[in-house]
Simulated assay, not measured.
Amino acid sequence: MKEINVAVAVLCFDGGQLGDEFLVAKRLMHQHQGGKLEFVGGKIEPNETARSALVREVAEELGLDISANLAVRMGVIRHEYTDDAGRADKKVALHVFKVMLDLSQYKTFKNQQFGKDGQVLSWLSTDELHAKKDEFPAANARIFEWLKLPQYLAISQPLANFTSVQQWAEHYAKVCEHRQNAPLYVRLQASISDERAAIEAVAKVTAGGACRLIVPLSNFLAYQDKLSQAARAQIVALKLNHDELMTAKAQDLVQNWAVDLPILASCHDAPSIQKANALASLSVAEGRGAGLVAILLSPVLPTATHPEAAGLGFERFGELAGLSDVPVFALGGLKPDDLAQCQAYGAWGVSGIRGFGG
């Protein structure tokens, strides 16, 4: 069965303190998946890129010109629909972008009830959108996991750079508070017992509230049953390093992972991205928790942490990011202010150590 490539626009307005709002449509009853809610989009023609198709489809369906808007690449979702008898019905590849609308566009469409084809339009807050995720086609399920991802990700320095676990915890509690919603990847390069102690110490310093932690998956498996409730509540995701990703063990971990914590993986080249794509697809097919939802692609630029590794450069980074089926965090020699440049080359977000308070 031929795969149909579709461009999908997650149209969003940043309302500041009021929160994000998303413009969605309701599919006409005679269409495939009729009556379902949908993000605006449509088929990519043979002579089009995903981005050009995105602009054309939004203009055709809404009369909205997004050619000058920021369109952040999220990923590619491959899904096969079946009919009522369980037979293959339709195979799609959704090329998903989050498109940020400006205030003028928001005001123009805020009270518009119908699209150009008569489809019902509505604006949903972030909470309303996630509450209605079951009203969208099954292929869209992955988008809701991606929308939970931050666009900044801080990485800790090793424990050896501090005088004690307590000093490390106090430092990164302040980093978490300053960076607000940016999670912290706990990269201690220390023993498993020290890592567990550091996580417990952060929970005590912040009274269990300020930090959102990402921890190494293999280490988490060793101490998860020993963590206090407050410490466990801080952990929002798990991570596979590059070497773990490339082993057969990674497939077993993802395939048998039943805890609803998303997994991120480190990638440095095309083979590792292909492996991450396979694991992301596997976790979706198996329905095992959130699965693999994003990668960290590095090093974009040379770093003090790994001076022996030449940077990819933005052009090569963009080529590799385009191979990923999941959102990409740019990593290596970057600062938070580099987000826009990284997104121009296909990143979802940006990550780092020293430039992020490390």
Rank of each mutant, 00 (worst) to 15 (best):
R51T: 11
I199P: 01
R27M: 11
L147D: 01
A285Q: 15
V254W: 00
A276M: 06
V236Q: 00
V96S: 02
L188E: 09
F114M: 11
D134Q: 13
P216W: 03
A330R: 09
A25T: 15
A138T: 07
F314S: 03
G289S: 04
W123P: 11
F162V: 13
H242R: 13
A230D: 14
M74T: 01
P262H: 07
F329W: 01
V24I: 14
Y345M: 09
I143E: 01
A85R: 15
V254Y: 01
V236K: 01
I77E: 12
A207F: 05
K174Y: 07
A304P: 02
I353E: 00
G19S: 05
L282E: 01
L296R: 07
H32E: 15
A285F: 03
L54V: 02
F97G: 08
V205Q: 08
C12Y: 02
K239V: 05
W257V: 13
A93D: 13
L54R: 01
S283Q: 07
S125Y: 01
K90P: 03
K110C: 00
A198F: 04
N241K: 08
S156V: 12
V120W: 04
A276P: 05
P271L: 09
Q113A: 15
L153E: 07
V186D: 07
G118F: 02
A197E: 10
D65F: 11
G15P: 04
G333S: 05
A237Y: 00
R179Y: 08
Q229M: 10
A210V: 13
H95M: 11
S266W: 06
S266I: 09
F39V: 07
N219D: 13
V254H: 03
Q151C: 02
V326P: 04
S67E: 06
W123N: 08
K226H: 13
V205P: 10
N256S: 00
K132C: 07
